[in-house]
Design a protein around this nucleic acid. Structure first.
Lengths: 203, 203, 203, 203
DNA sequence: GCATAAACGAGACGGTACGTCGGGTCTTCCA
DNA sequence: TGGAAGACCCGACGTACCGTCTCGTTTATGC
């Protein structure tokens, strides 16, 4: 009665698409980025090259789509909420320490480097990245910061985008340039500095 | 007294080396990075490919060497000193605004993106980058920060590497991800935030 | 009694079949043979590729079928009778000159080259060619030669297959290898030589 | 003093060239023509595809060059002289029987079919074929025929090109179309017919 | 006279080979 | 003897077709 056409009425299409993205993720995780080739992805996915080129214009786009698909799996929204214990310092340190840990995973490291390389070079991809990946995450974080503002733990006039940059960009840059060890202490130090810069009654 | 080595025994060597680096810089400035090929560099420099591979192990290394040579031109050290008017806030804002302006130059933009891409992917190059390019610059900046500490304008206990990261990383990340406009106001805001975080009597 | 199967119980079938063969003939006539693709035939015929593969096993077979259909149009047999004025020399020269003229038509030229290529390479097709195209034609010609034998204009012991080969093969080879101009005089010379070789009282 | 440049002053070039031609001949002899690919030739020759494309514009050209090289091996001319015992009939039957035998060799068969296919379709190749392969052979044969004319065994007014066609084309056509068995008797019959057509005192 | 299954057009699919590009190596020849 | 020139091997590129495989959508009966 219901579902006459079905949501997946084109199964072959979808199967090959998933195979391609999965193969891409696997390769990105295990190979240095410059060794990833469309041919390798196709072979690993058991797919013809044309099937890839029919859907995406370039290797970058496939790699990026693989990331997108990854983060879209935790689908309907709330997978990206931050903890809110009422203590902004504790909550941020938790999150920053978790981030530090993520970067320590070699296959995550390779994946993010691949993504960063693509984004650095291709403005269109960068726009899509900001829209589909970065912004939703930033919004979740800003929600937590707004809650801190309401609780009087953060300057109510603070530019939250700037706050996030001051908090995260040093970590990102140190990781990208391999400029030093990413430790728990470093994560804490960033939270402390950020709260000193944007804490209450500072302006 | 001068003329330490052989008189002209290796003039040809040096000429071709300079030609290669100049050609590389020219290409990096005018083409998107992925279009740069060793063949193009050799052609532009009027040099055989082997002459390039005799000196550098890979395309990345050539590109990187071109950057190195660029910054080594202002040779004997003092080209990288920061202004010191006694007012740290004013001095930093001056420097940050200048940085913002540099990034606005399209050919500088292309060059730094190329450099960043190489560094992100190749750990050995990243180490050389830190050693030969990043550290000398950081040292010059830290010298200015130490002067500010001595003048009581900065927390004497502040970790200066961290200060620099909080100051520069947000700018770098916003540029790299094209996350927003790089304005004078933004430069100032970063300086303000940094000084709030690491100003005197804050710890 | 008649109409056992119904003349048009599959009109769609027949229409698409004709469209495919017509498209094939058109392409063969206007393109060099190596550019002919099943995809092009299907597109030109307004037909799905599967409709072609449902009927024929290979491109060669389609091309060949297009020829067959062409010569089957002059249907019920007698379209291939040769003139018989009682003068074998005159009749053969007439026929040979007509053949020379056919080869001069560029689109006929392309078609026969395509056919020859297929046949040269595929033994099964060659067998079908001999059976369905070459033999009926050869029989018609041999009928005329037998009439000449009866009239005492040709050695009654002559091997008529050999006579036909001596008559036609030089023309065919000269055309295939582009070994020289195909003229009326050449046609006549072949008839003359053949009649000298197989004329009456020669053995 | 002598040999300033040397005939082989580019050894690498020549080595790879020979490897390509040898690999092509091997493949042509053992595979049906349509299965021969440039990739297979390159792989077999231990050579990059580019090295093939640098020298020849198409697969056809390589295949053809392989034939050319083959017949150029018996270099300085006299490898193509025909026997001359003074008896034209005996000599021609000898040669025709040898030709019949050649066509019976499967790998020779494949090679000539490949060559014929190329030539049928590509006019430029056909011209080169006539010039470099067919004509020298035809000249050798015509030399023998002229000797027969001088000996009064052949019509002195006969068009020798036509004689050769009448002699060879039927054999070639029967082989190409697989129109019947190629036997010793058939070879003899062709010689007989030809000599009846162009024997002395016939015109 | 309407339902239904075969055949259809369209075109995506897994593949193979194409002809090109560029990386990094090796050879030749000139200055 | 070192460098310009460029051929070489290799491997990936992105494209063209192959022959197969779904897809809905006609039609042309057969219930």
């Amino acid at each position: 009665m219901s579902n006459v056409k079905g949501p997946d009425h084109s199964r072959r299409k979808e199967r090959s698409r998933q195979a391609i993205l999965a193969a891409t993720r696997a390769l990105v995780a295990e190979e240095p980025y410059e060794k990833i080739t469309v041919e390798a992805i196709a072979a690993r996915a058991g797919v013809g090259k044309q099937t890839i080129y029919r859907r995406w214009p370039s290797k970058s786009a496939v790699v990026f789509a693989a990331f997108l698909a990854l983060s879209e799996d935790g689908e309907d929204g709330r997978s990206v909420a931050l903890p809110d214990t009422g203590d902004i310092e504790a909550d941020l340190k938790l999150v920053m320490r978790a981030t530090v840990e993520e970067f320590a995973d070699p296959s995550f490291d390779r994946m993010i480097r691949a993504l960063t390389t693509e984004i650095a070079v291709d403005a269109a991809l960068a726009a899509e990245y900001r829209e589909k990946l970065a912004r939703p995450l930033a919004e979740a974080k800003k929600a937590r910061l707004r809650s801190a503002q309401a609780a009087g733990q953060l300057d109510p006039a603070a530019d939250l985008d700037l706050v996030l940059e001051v908090l995260y960009a040093p970590l990102f840059q140190r990781w990208l340039h391999r400029g030093g060890p990413l430790t728990t202490a470093y994560a804490d130090a960033l939270v402390d500095a950020t709260l000193r810069a944007f804490g209450p009654g500072r302006r």
